[in-house]
């Protein structure tokens, strides 16, 4: 069953008197518990697609359904409520609030939802990501890897159905990056979360059950068993005909 469904999704932005098309008539379905990577070159529109799928931004046209919620019919506050209930985020730049401790950062989404067990749950998750002894440290007292662990704990603490990760290892060295990826996939498997991973790292994309490539505003299906080098094939009309999604 599809937890994310995008139909004819387009996004244009105006730059002065010119209109730039970033995404055009794009379709995508992601099933529950599936792990999918969106790959593409810098500037291909990966982050824009992620922001639309996660309800951070509104599309110029088309429809997006997230866990049964029609995002395109909701206003910004409505989308915020959907994010709070169903979505977790992990970012390349961690996006931790510098003045809050690790614990406070993890508690943040729970506090926004008015969860009275916020502290207990956040402590448990920090323990789980191996930061039980660092929970009262502020981000600037933590290494990059540790900061991303805090971000992972924050993403999972609300037990979301869907997790969006934007270049989660982009700011980390390969060893630390590998550790973070292992942790992310382990927790994802453990909690059965749907993972949408945006990356330009093909090896990382390879870890997902499937991947799609974004190029010139269009989406191309790539399968796990396909060699990644073949992903850069010519765009075909199939991009217009959903669904690409399949169960792994």
């Amino acid at each position: 069953m599809a937890v994310i469904k995008a139909e004819n999704l387009s996004k244009q932005v105006s730059l002065g008197d010119q209109t730039l098309s970033i995404l055009s008539a794009l379709n995508l379905e992601v099933n529950a518990r599936e792990t999918i990577a969106i790959i593409g070159r810098s500037g291909s529109g990966k982050s824009t697609l992620l922001s639309l799928l996660a309800g951070l931004d509104s599309a110029s046209s088309g429809k997006i359904s997230l866990n049964g919620n029609e995002l395109t019919e909701l206003n910004e506050d409505g989308r915020a409520a959907v994010r709070n209930q169903h979505v977790g985020f992990i970012f390349q730049s961690f996006q931790l609030l510098p003045h809050l401790t690790a614990l406070d950062n993890v508690m943040l989404p729970l506090e926004l939802a008015g969860d009275k067990q916020a502290q207990r749950k956040a402590e448990a998750w920090l323990d789980k990501v191996g930061l039980g002894s660092r929970m009262h440290h502020q981000p600037n007292q933590l290494s990059g890897g540790e900061q991303q662990r805090v971000a992972i704990a924050r993403a999972f603490v609300t037990e979301p159905e869907i997790l969006f990760a934007d270049e989660p290892t982009g700011n980390l060295d390969p060893t630390t990056g590998q550790t973070i990826v292992d942790l992310l996939f382990e927790l994802n498997a453990e909690h059965g979360t749907t993972l949408v991973l945006v990356t330009h790292d093909h090896q990382l994309a390879h870890l997902c059950q499937r991947y799609v490539t974004l190029e010139n505003g269009a989406l191309f299906e790539g399968r796990k068993e396909d060699p990644l080098e073949n992903a850069e094939h010519e765009p075909t009309k199939t991009q217009q005909t959903p669904p690409f999604a399949r169960n792994c």
Binding site: L56, E76, D77, A80, A81, R83, N84, Q85, V87, F89, Q95, L97, L108, P109, L112, A113
Partner: peptide, 16 residues
Amino acid sequence: YETAALLRCLGAEQKD
């Protein structure tokens, strides 16, 4: 701005 954007991302409404 960053704090507000993150709070919005995590589900805070405009009035929040």
